[in-house]
Write a protein that binds this DNA or RNA. Structure first.
Length: 486
RNA sequence: GCCGCCUUAGCUCAGUUGGUUAGAGCGCUAGAAUGUGGAUCUAGAGGUCCUCCGUUCGAUUCGGAGAGGCGGUACCA
């Protein structure tokens, strides 16, 4: 009987590729977001928010087909049988919004937005099926100066997040130049073109030797799986490698755009350490029409298991002059950038570059006498009014040791203790749990430990809040907040 | 999608050449110690050995299929 019931219990489990987020991550993410917002606002961008769900056809070419309605995107049918999809990026919904409100929008439209996006595909390391992006775009801006500004803003954003000059680089390239290379070696087949571009994109992953294999017959990976190559001949392959090594190119249009951008950013004080032209930068294949950019972290990241991980790209973007045309028929040039917030957070966390501004745990007011709950609650309120996190112990107050154990495990800076003795005297006990923890290192015997009450002292009830404020842990954290308020 | 590795207690993992009662550490609960966190000691709870099918007198162990996890690779708007 008991067994049968057990079998009927629901299994607590997460959907593949989705994750719960814990307090530290949420706080760190919010902190990052605030910094990014600040930079984007400074550059004159305004926020916008669009829904998670869009009509599938509005999202572009990834329509659910009959056989695989959920390939790549999560899709479902509405009551009227129309296909809806969870957004897989923030650009397609922006294009829809702009097309829909094209007469009201004041161009050039500088806009940013953040949010969750969803992809129905196999999750990998640092890769999830729900993740957060943070985008900025300038819509209705045909000039290279818009691309230059986006690149500079990206550089500023990286630095605002605490990543130093030289620890990141914004790589820039131009699609037109890549097209010129393909043209020069006589590759006209669309599939082959894509294979060549994909191979080029993998330079940082596999190196020149790996690229040669991918341009030719193909490459076998570490698990023994074989990737078919682009099938170029020796001469074609050599031309591509020469291009990657910086050989001169003949696409005048693309080259001059890149030169123009470089001139603009250098003029504004962004040298090659920050924004660099890189022939191996490719990005979204059938999507971008001119400039493409990518933000790359240059330092090694060590993961939880102590392995070194090459982190690479944490964001990318480019010019997409065709996206809004799908809706309106008229070309609306646009350029923008997308930051992979979740990825960036992981990188910063592994690096220890997140500022240590962890929220201190609350002060715990212990319950020693159940008939005096309202008096304990009053203490909590006074602390809160002073801007100090505080809570009344809400577990079973029967066992007093449990209350301190709870406070200890939460890393609370202090506990307030008041029983009948203290109430009679008009005092409270303040127990500095951090000082006590320090003292415990030298006390082996529990009887002594108990009688000594390390870190604990008695103060007048009326001075409780002031004395709490004087605790080292409280002073350090709350000083900044109070200064800001005053 | 393809390739490889993995799945035993809440967690990390031993183990069983196919056999009666499957273990450890950590964690959890209780007590020593009812107004004091840590350390220590004692006791206790906790398992369809991922699922199904097959081989076998007998399967957690062997075989097959499937699911899930990790990693590589492909795709990536």
């Amino acid at each position: 009987m008991a067994k049968k019931q057990k079998k009927q219990k629901a299994k607590a489990r997460l959907v593949r590729g989705f994750n719960d987020r814990l307090a530290d991550d949420i706080r760190a993410t919010n902190d990052m977001m605030a910094k990014i917002h600040k930079v984007f606002e400074l550059y004159g961008f305004d926020p916008i928010e669009t829904p998670f769900l869009e009509y599938s056809d509005a999202l572009g070419k990834f329509l659910p087909d009959e056989d695989r309605p959920n390939a790549g995107v999560f899709s479902l049918q509405d009551e009227d049988e129309q296909w809806l999809s969870l957004r897989y990026d923030l650009t397609a919904p922006l294009a829809r919004h702009v097309a829909q409100n094209i007469n009201e929008i004041n161009f050039p439209y500088r806009t940013y937005r953040q949010g969750w996006v969803f992809r129905n595909e196999k999750p990998g390391p640092g890769r999830f099926r729900q993740f957060m992006q943070f985008d900025a775009d300038i819509v209705g801006a045909p000039n290279i100066s818009a691309d230059a500004e986006i690149c500079m803003m990206m550089a500023d954003t990286m630095e605002a997040l605490g990543i130093k000059k030289g620890d990141y680089v914004i790589r820039v390239n131009n699609r037109k130049v890549l097209d010129g290379v393909l043209e020069a070696i006589g590759v006209i087949d669309e599939e082959q073109k894509l294979s060549v571009l994909r191979a080029i994109d993998k330079l940082d992953k596999f190196g020149i030797e790996g690229i040669k294999l991918l341009l030719g017959e193909g490459r076998k990976d570490e698990s023994g799986d074989f990737t078919k190559g682009a099938g170029l001949n020796e001469a074609q392959s050599k031309s591509v490698i020469d291009y990657l090594n910086g050989a001169e190119q003949n696409n005048i249009d693309g080259i001059s755009e890149l030169e123009n951008l470089q001139q603009l950013v250098i003029g504004a004080g962004y040298d090659e350490n920050r924004i660099k032209i890189d022939p191996s930068c490719v990005r979204g294949l059938e999507y971008y029409t001119g400039m493409v950019y990518e933000a790359e972290l240059l330092f090694d990241v060590t993961n939880e298991k102590g392995q070194k991980v090459q982190f690479g790209s944490v964001g990318g973007g480019g010019r997409y002059d065709g996206l809004i045309k799908r809706f309106t028929g008229q070309t609306v040039p646009a350029t923008g950038f997308s930051i992979g917030v979740s990825r960036l957070l992981t990188a910063l966390k592994n690096l220890g570059k997140l500022e240590n501004n962890e929220m201190p745990a609350p002060i715990i007011v212990c319950v020693m006498d159940k008939t005096r709950i309202s008096e304990y609650q009053k203490m909590v309120t006074e602390l809160r009014e002073a801007g100090i996190r505080a809570e009344l112990y809400q577990g079973n107050p029967k066992n007093f040791g449990k209350q301190l154990q709870y406070a200890d495990r939460r890393n609370c800076p202090a506990a307030i203790i008041a029983g009948s003795d203290e109430f009679n005297k008009g005092t409270v006990q303040i127990k500095d749990l951090i000082a006590g923890k320090e003292a415990s290192k030298n006390i082996k015997d529990n009887k002594i430990w108990k009688s000594k009450r390390p870190g604990q002292f008695e103060v007048k009830r009326s001075e409780m809040v002031e004395k709490i404020k004087e605790l080292p842990a409280i002073r350090v954290y709350y000083r900044g907040a109070n200064d800001a308020a005053n």
